[in-house]
Design a protein around this nucleic acid. Structure first.
Length: 196
DNA sequence: CAAGAGATCATCT
DNA sequence: GATGATCTCTTGA
């Protein structure tokens, strides 16, 4: 058995956001900068689901910023937060149903392309964007195009259900009923997640 | 180690 | 004018 490497396509993202968020654990995020490829294993995600999720930016309606979440799946949603950091999301589900998965933490790939390889390089949404030089130029671009500068690979790693921890999302205490819903997912025992 | 504050600006009211 | 899907630094036990 050879494990085949494939780039995740639209049918992967065009599904229930909670499923996509969990299925992204163990997949690789690949960033191309010039001729170089930097990659990491996704170890932590969060789901933001639809117009009723008070933590989802799109719950406040369609605006210039949130419009991308109302579009079709497999497109990057990148925004600046706290004036300093970017957060990386991929749009999910059907058109006009605003939802996305936030990529919260990566374990650096063992290819050792990073000049600083350590536990805290990409253990948070702002930090992984900084490490991979992800900014607003990525916003609204496709994660699925052949020439994407940022895309997902399935390299055959499967994370079983029993190894996935479900927890409440980070930093959304303003979200009323939705603040405690178990929409954060991470690989049990992984050393590269943002918080225990 | 935990808790608190400050950095800093795009976005929306 | 207020706020935030964060992070780092400082303080203190």
């Amino acid at each position: 058995m050879t494990s085949e490497i494939s780039i995740l396509n639209r049918s992967f993202f065009e599904r229930d956001t909670k499923k996509v968020a969990q299925d992204l654990l163990g997949k690789f995020l690949v960033r191309r900068i010039g001729k170089n490829l930097f990659s990491g294993i996704i170890v932590e995600t969060e789901a933001y689901i639809g117009p009723h999720d008070l933590a989802c930016h799109a719950s406040k309606g369609k605006t210039e910023r949130t419009e991308v979440m109302f579009g079709s799946a497999g497109i990057w949603y990148v925004y600046m937060i706290y004036g300093m950091y970017y957060c990386l999301n991929v749009v999910t589900e059907r058109k006009d149903y605003p939802s996305a998965v936030l990529i919260r933490a990566l374990e650096p790939d063992s290819d050792l392309q990073f000049t600083t390889y350590n536990l805290r390089l990409m253990n948070g949404p702002g930090k992984l964007c900084r490490a991979l030089r992800i900014d607003k130029k990525i916003n609204r671009t496709s994660a699925m195009a052949k020439n994407s500068k940022l895309y997902f690979e399935d390299r055959g790693i499967k994370i079983s259900k029993s190894r996935i921890v479900k927890a409440k999302r980070i930093g959304v205490d303003y979200a009323g009923k939705w603040k405690d819903k178990p929409l954060r997912f991470y690989i049990k025992g992984n050393k590269f997640i943002s918080k225990i």
